[in-house]
């Protein structure tokens, strides 16, 4: 099995087609680009032409949003085959998916929906990840979700659940620090505490994104909106994580109200400067 992630320990951004002219103009100071796998599952055309350019000049992370790994039903074999084809076509440095479900009974909801954490779901998620890794013949990364609700019958804390998935399947993890923060605020826990129990030794990529702030009575309610700069408390948690764990490939996600290229690049620079500050410490994690 190929290693999970060969992404450089640098900052990257989500690729948006509207930025392509800026990106193609000159080599950008970025370690990698990430794409949503589903947007590149058409047969041909401009998406693939742009992707080919990106892949020729940068490391690539393929990030799936449609495999519905957390659903009790069998995986969609057509979709898995498409993901496999995209991976053969682009040979990405990393492939990741979500701890969530998005399809049920032939309907695709186009959202990352939550699941309870129990022995039952542990078994089914592990089985699905096994199947994906076997089909793709590589390790994948599993991302922690942002959630708005919890399930009364969950019996396993999320970090422990993810750690056990790693133990059972040999997958690695994608730590979304914004998701940690959003979930913690929404459920009234301490984000720093939640982060401290996340199995960081298995994390091969970090996601940073902006959230939207709403309210619920007198309390804040956060929405994982990906439509604004990374919030200060999330950046602070990120800096702390890197200070403790050493450099980890880091992605700035910005999917809605996509800014001009320089603004997105500035966000990546902010993450890069935090990575640079801990450069010396680098290969602890990579070698572990």
């Amino acid at each position: 099995m190929s290693p999970s992630s060969l992404l450089p320990c640098r900052a990257g951004v989500s690729f948006k087609p509207q930025h392509f002219p800026c990106i193609a103009e000159a080599q950008q100071p970025l370690g990698f680009f990430e794409i949503h796998a589903e947007n590149y599952m058409g047969a041909g055309g401009r998406p693939h032409a742009q992707l080919q350019h990106i892949r020729a000049h940068y490391a690539l992370s393929v990030h799936g949003v449609g495999l519905s790994i957390g659903a009790p039903q069998p995986l969609d074999q057509d979709h898995l085959a498409r993901l496999k084809q995209l991976c053969s076509r682009t040979e990405p440095q990393s492939v990741s998916e979500h701890l969530a479900w998005s399809a049920h009974d032939g309907v695709f909801f186009n959202d990352l929906l939550p699941l309870p954490y129990t022995e039952e779901t542990l078994g089914l998620v592990a089985e699905h990840i096994d199947e994906v890794q076997t089909q793709l013949r590589r390790q994948i990364l599993l991302e922690n979700p942002a959630t708005y609700i919890r399930f009364a019958h969950s019996t396993i804390p999320e970090p422990e659940f993810m750690h056990e998935i790693v133990r059972r399947t040999g997958c690695a993890l994608l730590l979304d620090i914004n998701n940690i923060y959003v979930s913690a605020i929404n459920h009234g826990s301490d984000p720093l505490q939640d982060l401290s129990i996340f199995p960081i030794e298995h994390v091969r990529e970090i996601h940073l994104a902006g959230h939207a702030e709403s309210s619920e009575g007198s309390r804040p309610l956060l929405i994982d909106a990906h439509g604004s700069p990374v919030a200060d408390p999330v950046m602070a948690l990120y800096a702390r994580t890197i200070a403790e764990a050493g450099p980890i490939p880091t992605l700035i996600e910005w999917d809605n109200d996509v800014p001009q290229w320089p603004q997105l690049l500035a966000q990546a620079h902010a993450a890069q400067s935090i990575l640079d500050a801990h450069e010396g410490f680098s290969h602890h994690i990579a070698a572990a």
Partner: peptide, 9 residues
């Protein structure tokens, strides 16, 4: 509702 994760279609 959509039947496939390929939202472009």
């Amino acid at each position: 509702p959509p039947a496939s994760p390929l939202m472009m279609f």
